[in-house]
Design a protein around this nucleic acid. Structure first.
Lengths: 326, 326
DNA sequence: ATGAAAGCGCTAACAC
DNA sequence: GTGTTAGCGCTTTCAT
């Protein structure tokens, strides 16, 4: 049994409130007593029970992060930055992978609320506004605008898609394809696709679009689609992938099919994850400001927790990284 | 203010203990009352406060995961599986990235304990046994044997290193290198290096070893080392990388230097992360059973929490994935 | 079958 | 300066 404030009090022969005072550095305390108490704390290896404190203060210093899966490098990097900011602000992070499972998402939302987290960061949403309003907790989302009440932060998907497509065209592509996650879901990232289509049309370039499985996190699925694309249109000379992971698979298949990148075919990814620098050849991509997204999202959450007003629409600019696949 | 058990009791006109009974399905309750109470709970959107429950029960249903950084794909995948098992057992996961920072690690350890987590999974340790014994919490580690009291689970590093090296040799390499994380730290993964050296010696093959920066998670550092290797020994014909991430960078540099893989030079990685299948060409690697490692580690933690005896040394076999870089 | 009361570990009025 | 006390939201004896 770990020592409690009572044990300390008893050992020193004072009241628990006195111990509490030194613990919180509040109120007057004689130096001699303070010293004695501090010594006792060390001797008994005392640590305040944060659960009890949370119960009283109604402040848990915990936030929840709900994402589809931390196994995806984009979310892993996002998460890593988020944890970094949280730590600096003395917040702990509860990691929740929804796996795009609606039930799991709902369960986690309830869990988190029941555990008194102060706010939630969501990179995964299958649930709707009504369900959210029940949660009644500070919330920030990525990639999805749930309602105009709930702040979101996202990269400039349209502009990102435009940059990628224009790059392909500029570099001479005349028959381009986009491989994207499912467009059925109302995700902000679908605007990458809108931009692709509009840019292609604007330049009068032939184009086609292929969608991966519903959630786009299944590599096996990617390769089938890429193969299908190449067998149907062997003369495709440019591909915009809606994620670097997909782009890496394209590069792999190109290598396998002996299609030279970038001479015969050019590829642009999206995200700018660490691995995009380590592909062969290094991947041209639309780099999302992952760190900044994390920082802003965390900041927005803190503001809500502190009842400060927040901007709901937060779109951050991307950076086009022209490397060696274009 | 969310509704409490008192609000429910007042609304229905019963004592809180009665409400508590229906909440916990304990003791006798008339059907009519139960129904009324359940209705009230729904009407008030009641959710039990898990913090209060934790305080009373001394059971938080939370565990902590301390890893160097979830941005590294190996840990991201491990974490993803861990979260999966935790969820299935109704446990929540607090994510802690130590960044190999001793202070941060210590802080987190204390935080976690103060927050009454039931156990800790550690993939990062700079602290020592003495510091650990103060924690006095169920613990399982990866990659590092802290003491013979603390269970760890790891892939068979020696055998993995041996398989990788033998593969290189078997495929005809006569001048091989290993690029590894720092060997200064007493990590289990250093045995990959031991195996490399012994296998090379056994076959009378020339070899050399290069170490990355202390913690081996800095890609900029990797490339410098790889370049250095190639400029010093341009006729190297095989490299064993101690991680797939390093291996990917080697592949990239080879592409850049126009060294053909696998004809001129062969590369084997370690880990078997998802990306290892998407490199060009697909990477031969020693695949760690990441899911199984996570499962066993979680299981070991649960056993300790339940005061069941556990095996301390847990070494799981790897699988040699021969793809197209060898 | 239901209520009253004590207590989990801690904090914050309010006394003295 | 330090002690007393009530209470955070919940659970669990122990009465009735």
């Amino acid at each position: 049994m770990p020592a409690t404030i009572k044990d300390i009090a008893k050992k020193v022969g004072v009241n628990v409130s006195t111990v509490s005072r030194v613990l919180n550095n509040r109120g007057y305390i004689s130096d001699s007593l303070r010293e004695k108490i501090e010594r006792a704390m060390i001797e008994l290896n005392y640590q305040p029970n944060e659960v009890a404190r949370t119960l009283f203060r109604k402040k848990s210093n915990m936030i929840g992060i709900i994402i589809p899966t931390v196994a995806h490098p984009f979310f892993a990097e996002l998460c890593s930055h988020l944890e970094d900011y949280a730590y600096r602000h003395q917040y702990k992070v509860v990691l929740c992978n929804s796996q795009h499972d609606r039930d799991k998402e709902l369960m986690y939302l309830n869990y988190l609320k029941a555990n008194q987290v102060e706010g939630i960061l969501m990179g995964s949403q299958t649930i709707n506004v009504a369900e959210f309003s029940k949660i009644a907790l500070p919330l920030v989302t990525f990639d999805r605008a749930i309602s105009d009440q709930i702040p979101y932060v996202s990269s400039d998907n349209y502009e990102g898609g435009r940059m990628a497509t224009e790059l392909l065209i500029e570099k001479g592509c005349r028959k381009i394809a986009m491989i994207t996650g499912s467009l059925k879901l109302p995700m902000l990232s679908n605007r990458r696709h809108d931009a692709f289509v509009e840019a292609a049309k604007k330049h009068g370039i032939w184009y086609t679009v292929l969608e991966t499985d519903d959630y786009g996190f299944n590599p096996d699925n990617y390769e089938g689609i890429i193969m299908e694309l190449f067998s149907k249109y062997p003369d495709i000379d440019g591909i915009f992938a809606s994620s670097d992971v997909i782009a890496a698979h394209i590069l792999k298949i190109c290598h396998q099919l002996n299609k030279k990148v970038p001479s015969q075919i050019k590829v642009v990814g999206y995200d700018g994850i660490a691995f995009s620098e380590a592909t062969a050849p290094p991947l041209s991509t639309v780099r999302q400001p992952i760190r900044e997204i994390a920082e802003l999202a965390f900041d927005l959450l803190m503001k809500q927790i502190n009842h400060e007003p927040v901007e709901c629409v937060n779109i951050l600019p991307n950076e086009l990284k022209i490397r060696q696949t274009t």
